[in-house]
Design a protein around this nucleic acid. Structure first.
Length: 414
RNA sequence: CGGGAGAUGUCAGAGCGGUUGAAUGUGCCGGUCUUGAAAACCGGUGAGGGUAACACCUCCGGGGGUUCGAAUCCCCCUCUCCCGGCCA
């Protein structure tokens, strides 16, 4: 959630930053206006409440003195009527403001490049050379079919399109990758946790999936429960409504979960293979940090994911997202894109974001600094998307005879 | 899913319908004492909003109601614990 006080006090700055994400100034002006009106109305209401409290306290005094309380009662009735009236105004304003505020994305960092979409993202660096083949490398679905590693048809039979079944080497490799990634992250200081794949509405609000992106979520029928689209949701919400100790920060967490996404807006995209599935495995990193720690933690997370790819021998590049391509909750994001020889392209395999205090404000995650409570910074990143890593290994390690070589570091996991 | 009990500050645990945002203990912070520590004693210590700072407002699981006034009474929901059933 945007900091409404900041919006009020430094409107130009906030408005300018949010323009990077394509937010119109009129919307922010309306938000600021509403906030101003709400403050006024609240002040009005509160002074009436103060009056009510004060008068109510007179009752015991009157009774003791044997005085008649009926005129006092009448007065209070009038005040109460006014309070009810003002209360309704305040309530209406609050819910109106909430709808606006919860739908405003996070303010991008100063350093975020201008741009409309992914074409304006800025490549930071490339790691490892692209492999050369003395044959034409295949795409992962061709390899998968030849090797009987992935059963696309039966995945669809079991559920619907964009579901698949991993078999043989793929099933084993998937599991090996999960274990390898978790161990790798643990060595970097991230504590492994195992969390629910189903969370409630409050959690989804806390990390920003709701209310805006309800269409992307699988909801449990008849319940206010949702399948998680990423472990970021349960991991970050572990600390919702909590006040953490300063000296336990930063908290570094890693978790493997399945992730579920409706992919509502991506009809026709990546329909072949398992690049874009409704259910996929991911190992996630989440950090809860003090504001002054968050840049350092961010670098650590990017490095962790990048080194993980390197350790698997997978060529990749780091890309800084431009304003227009930034996610709703992110102040800054670096994507890691892995080289897929079959496609001849770099494809996203990880995304590391610093949400600053955006999620913390929604989810009320604070820490105690001396006597004061301050909002933490929350960060999240994949390390890595397991299915896409599987694809990357298949395509990068494919041999002329159609077999797949196994990266050295994974051998002990198989 | 059925029966019973409960939900209060870090935790434990009081709370008559009226200065109770909340006794007491504990934890934590500060002080006295001490060579230092412990013990003892004194003081401070919930959250959110508001203010230059006060004042002031809201919050005792969540929502509604009764009342001039509710942590305290009534209704609904959620959650926790115990007993039984079912089950990985």
């Amino acid at each position: 959630m945007v900091d409404l006080k900041r919006l009020q006090n430094s409107f130009e700055e906030v408005s300018k930053s949010l323009r990077k994400k394509g937010i119109k100034e009129e919307l922010l002006k309306e938000l600021r206006r509403l906030f101003g009106v709400l403050k006024e109305q609240r002040a009005k209401l509160e002074s009436l409440q103060a009056e009510k409290n004060e008068k109510s306290r007179l009752f015991p005094v009157y009774k003791k003195e044997g005085k008649d309380v009926s005129s006092l009662k009448d007065e209070l009735d009038k005040i109460k009527e006014k309070i009810n009236f003002e209360q309704k105004i305040v309530n209406d304003l609050e819910s109106e403001l909430e709808i606006y505020a919860l739908n405003i994305p996070n303010i991008p960092d100063e350093s975020v490049p201008e741009g409309k979409d992914e074409n304006d993202n800025v490549e930071i660096k490339r790691v490892l050379d692209i492999p050369q083949f003395d044959f034409t490398p295949k795409e992962h679905w061709e390899l998968a079919e030849d090797l009987e590693w992935i059963d696309f048809k039966r995945g669809v039979k079991l559920a619907k399109s964009r579901f698949s079944v991993l078999k043989n080497g793929a099933a084993k490799l998937e599991r090996a990758l999960i274990n390898y990634m978790l161990d790798f992250n643990a060595k970097r200081g991230f504590n492994e946790v195992c969390v629910p794949y189903i969370v409630n509405k409050e959690s989804m609000l806390g990390t920003g999936q709701l209310p805006k992106f309800a269409d992307d979520l699988f909801k449990i029928e008849g319940e206010e429960l949702y399948l998680i689209p990423t472990a970021e949701v349960p991991l970050t919400n572990l600390f919702r409504d909590e006040i953490l100790c300063e000296d336990e920060l930063p908290l570094l967490l890693t978790s493997y979960t399945a992730c579920f996404r409706k992919e509502a807006g991506s009809a026709g995209r990546d329909t072949r293979g398992i690049i874009r599935q409704h259910q996929f495995d991911k190992v996630e990193l989440v950090s809860i940090a003090k504001p002054e720690q968050s840049d350092e933690v961010f670098e650590k997370m990017v490095e962790c994911a990048s080194d993980l790819l390197t350790s698997l021998g997978l060529p990749h590049r780091l890309v800084e997202l431009c304003g227009g391509d930034l996610g709703f909750g992110a102040a800054r994001t670096i994507d890691l894109e892995v080289w897929l020889p079959g496609q001849g392209k770099y494809r996203e395999i990880s995304s590391v974001s610093n949400t600053r205090d955006f999620q913390a404000r929604r989810a009320k995650i604070r820490y105690k600094e001396g006597k004061k409570n301050r909002l933490v910074h929350t960060l999240n990143g994949s390390s890595l998307a397991v299915g896409r890593t599987l694809i990357a290994i298949m395509e990068n390690y494919q041999q002329k005879d159609g077999s797949i070589k196994i990266p050295e570091v994974l051998k002990k996991y198989l």
